[in-house]
Write a protein that binds this DNA or RNA. Structure first.
Lengths: 346, 346
DNA sequence: TTGTAAGCGTTATCAG
DNA sequence: CTGATAACGCTTACAA
């Protein structure tokens, strides 16, 4: 617990000089600098973060508020955020499981004086008010949220386009009765994917059967349950589009148990293209989203904004998706399951 | 950006009183407290974290240093850590991708004055020295690391026991040629699982064939590659134990491509019991580890230690594992794949 | 019960 | 190029 004072004393200089050595190190004689560095090293000194940020009003930390997330999505997102932040000299203060709007404000308050800006994921549809409780002028990037009245940057993914193009792809293979297993209710991504599905049906001139829209919540178990329900109700679409890969895999499992062959008896497709997708049987067609890229972009934008003066120009970005065709949807050219894994793809 | 001074002025009290309202709120007249709270609320005041921790020498934040982790393991671990920390009023400062021992020290220094304690995951075998660069007396919990000379608490999982019992289980099903797909070299968990495998073979009186120990790195792709290599080399064990589920699933996929039936032609088992394990075909036998529990325990221990005086008693804990038998290993009673998902299990 | 004032470890503004 | 010294926003004896 050695402070700048101690280093200064031992190096025979003033605290100001030590400080200068650690910052804009101009205007320090080389000899002095070396002596200070050396003393500091010997004493095991490093500047006290809190003291520093008290006077500079900069914490070099960004806050990340997330809902309770599971699986790959969470880890990929954090990876993108943390890597970018670190590369730019910032720390990441993480706080998850903040889905309730009410619990948002306390979380925000507790971060005052601890972070320079915020990445806020508000997937709930009713979270539009989220931005409201934010101190005006405080740099915030919204992630995967519904359009908000808040004057914040926002980043998301092309849920609508991705879902739409997958459904169109299924239709191009001849499918006319296409079901969807929906994501969590009240979830914006889920709502957009459903909207993409519905729009595609309309565009294709297919009837929309409410019975073909099964509820789900993004979990494998929900996909499994939805598939079972289809079979029980003798509702047999020729293709099923699940709002994420986890549910698609749950559905695959249920169909298999029921003795159905995928894709011959029923086609299946998912969303997200998690790494596992290419290894299930049959390999799962999906909509690829580069989650870590999403995290990276959001972080880059936030850090850029930290520099700009208060009235910033807002930025909204939607990350495009890619259709990934594998065997499960029955396309003739469905990529072989044994395609070597290419990290740059995943 | 309203400070305690402003609140004090507007409420007609001194800063000390405002401070008291926000802390050990004894010794403040009810009427005063209400007035202060009200004023603060109206002004949107919340105490400045950095200023606070400068004087109290407490940040109410714990640092978490992790290697570059993928998938479920990462998210489960963070979930356990963050939930526990939050419940006890602490923040989590995250820093990942710190596998290099050299990059550890800068990371540590940059956290000085920002965290009260540290959870440090050092899976590399040569990371024993990691603890060395830690300020003596600074509360640290080591996670999944090799035994270290550092005077730190350490938490890990029963890799050895888990691997050993899975291999014994495979042997009990009649298997005599049991292969292993190893985890990342230099990784402690991987080394322990390999040791468990080898020990089991010895105990069972089976010969140890170095050719049956295939290299891997915990990725699906590595499992796939290892399985292919087995087949190419015409090395056909009757059972394969993969050091994690990801590799087991990669292997399943490769065997399927080669026209082998699992478990009839070859049995497969994994480690970790990720949620996906029960949904692959055939459902994967595995060794269950409650990762989020690991994170929770480590965090609880760290926060407890923050209270204790300097010379603490060291605590080392190994989280037990459970054998989860499903179809892929060919056990007669292998649980049906359609077992309803029970969240408390996963 | 409340106010005054001395720091906490740094940075930054002035003089020298 | 270097040294005093006044903040930064808050907590906490010590007084009142």
């Amino acid at each position: 617990v050695v402070t700048i004072k101690e280093v200064a004393r031992r190096a025979g200089v003033s605290v100001a000089t030590v400080s200068r050595v650690y910052n804009h190190s101009h205007r320090v004689r080389e000899e002095t600098r070396v002596r200070v560095r050396h003393t500091a090293q010997r004493l095991g000194y490093s500047p006290h973060g809190a003291a520093r940020s008290l006077v500079t009003n900069r914490t070099h930390t960004i806050g990340v508020l997330l809902p309770d997330l599971y699986g790959e999505f969470f880890s990929e997102l954090i990876r993108g955020i943390d890597q970018t932040a670190q590369a730019r000299g910032y720390h990441v203060l993480l706080s998850s499981a903040r889905s309730q709007v009410e619990s948002l404000e306390p979380a925000l308050r507790s971060m005052r004086g601890r972070v320079d800006g915020l990445i806020l994921m508000t997937p709930d549809l009713d979270a539009a008010a989220a931005g409201r409780s934010l101190p005006a002028g405080f740099p915030v990037v919204l992630l995967n949220g519904p359009p908000s009245d808040a004057a914040c940057d926002s980043f998301g993914i092309a849920n609508f386009d991705g879902a739409r193009s997958m459904v169109r792809h299924l239709a191009s293979l001849g499918h006319r009765r296409i079901a969807i297993i929906c994501g969590a209710e009240q979830n914006f991504d889920a709502a957009e994917r459903l909207r993409g599905y519905r729009t595609a049906l309309v565009e294709l001139g297919l009837d929309r059967d409410p019975g073909l829209e099964l509820p789900g919540d993004f979990s494998e178990a929900a996909g499994h349950a939805a598939a079972r329900r289809m079979l029980e109700r003798d509702l047999r679409p020729s293709a099923v589009f699940a709002a994420n890969d986890g549910m698609a895999i749950g559905a695959l499992s249920a169909f298999r148990d029921a003795g159905l062959r995928v894709p011959d008896d029923i086609a299946v497709a998912g969303f997200d293209d998690i790494p596992m997708a290419r290894y299930v049987e049959p390999a799962l067609s999906s909509v690829r989203v580069d989650i870590s890229e999403l995290g990276k972009n959001a972080t880059d934008r936030l850090l850029d904004a930290l520099g700009e003066p208060a009235p910033r120009t807002l930025q909204h970005q939607t990350l495009p998706t890619t259709l990934v065709v594998r065997r499960s949807c029955g396309a003739p050219g469905g990529a072989a399951r044994s395609t070597p894994f290419n990290p740059s793809e995943g």
